[in-house]
Structures are given as structure tokens and as C-alpha cells.
């Protein structure tokens, strides 16, 4: 793995994508899109785990390398940094429903790194960040629309 100086590290995010029992349909599209983001230099994939939660709530974690026939993901697997620790598995799996499988993806936002570095050099400190759920955007628009309708 290429070493990245701490000052040049972009923001690191994670997602847990759950696949309820019987609803997964892996046809390679996810891998293709992930590789495209990586190849384009938009993100750097730091870690990937596959979690399963049994009906009784017990959790099993698989490394990407445990999967046979990784295909194009093989190139990503060789670069993973194994950032997640064993204790993270239980924390992440807390969001999962029993009987489901989930992919955990950790990545660095390479696209944001130059701006983040510049902000740090300018003396800026990150004091808040987050993600706005689409539901919140919809609710906001709906509230505006309702107000407009009532005002007519």
C-alpha cells in the first residue's frame, strides 16, 4: 500500500450495506462501479469486510480474501489496509437485522484530500461534518410546498 502523509489524507468514510435474506443479487455491477471509483482516483478503498448475522444474532465476519473467485476485486484486496479491528465488527453489525448479510466498505475520499489539506494549512479545523439523508431533503421540500399551498 502506498503511504499517505497524514496531512494529505482525505476524509475517511464508511458504509454498511445490508442485504436482507434472499434479496442479494450480485452480478458484478457493484464491483465494477467500486473499481471505477478507485481507478479514477476518486476514492482509495481502505478496508472491506463481509458480515453475516444469524437469526440468533450471532455475527460472522469474512475477509474479502475469504471469497472465492474475487475477480476484478482481487486488485483491491491486495491494497487493503485492514483498518477495522475485531471490536469494530460488533459495533457495525449492531445495525444489521438478524438473517442479513452486509458489506462494510471503508474508503478515503481522495477527491477531497487537496481541499482538506489546504483548509488545514489555512488554519481551518473541521468542527462538523455529516450526511444529509434523502428523506430529510424530501421532508424539507414537502414542508416548503405545503407552506406555499397554504399561503395561496
Amino acid at each position: 500500500m502506498t503511504q499517505t502523509p497524514l496531512d494529505e489524507l482525505g476524509p475517511v468514510d464508511y458504509v454498511v450495506v445490508e442485504f436482507p435474506a434472499g434479496e442479494s443479487n450480485f452480478d458484478g455491477e457493484m464491483a465494477k462501479e467500486l473499481l471505477a471509483l478507485s481507478d479514477a482516483g476518486t476514492i482509495r478503498v481502505i478496508d472491506i469486510l463481509i458480515l453475516t448475522k444469524d437469526a440468533d444474532g450471532s455475527i460472522e465476519a469474512m475477509e474479502l480474501s475469504d471469497i472465492e473467485n474475487l475477480g476484478p476485486l482481487q486488485q483491491l484486496e491486495a491494497e487493503l489496509a485492514e483498518l477495522l479491528a475485531e471490536e469494530d465488527v460488533a459495533h457495525l453489525a449492531a445495525a444489521m437485522d438478524p438473517g442479513s448479510t452486509a458489506g462494510v466498505l471503508i474508503w478515503e475520499n481522495l477527491w477531497a484530500a487537496p481541499f482538506a489539506s489546504a483548509a488545514r494549512r489555512a488554519g481551518g479545523q473541521l468542527i462538523a461534518d455529516g450526511r444529509i439523508p434523502i428523506q430529510a431533503i424530501l421532508a424539507s421540500i414537502q414542508a416548503d410546498d405545503n407552506e406555499t399551498t397554504q399561503g395561496e
Partner: peptide, 12 residues
């Protein structure tokens, strides 16, 4: 991965 301090910090 075993025995290290995690990075998530709390149940999600």
C-alpha cells in the same frame, strides 16, 4: 485485527 483499538467507537 484482533486486540487492536477499533475506529468505529460505538454500536452503529
Amino acid at each position: 485485527r484482533v486486540g487492536r483499538v477499533g475506529v468505529i467507537g460505538h454500536p452503529v
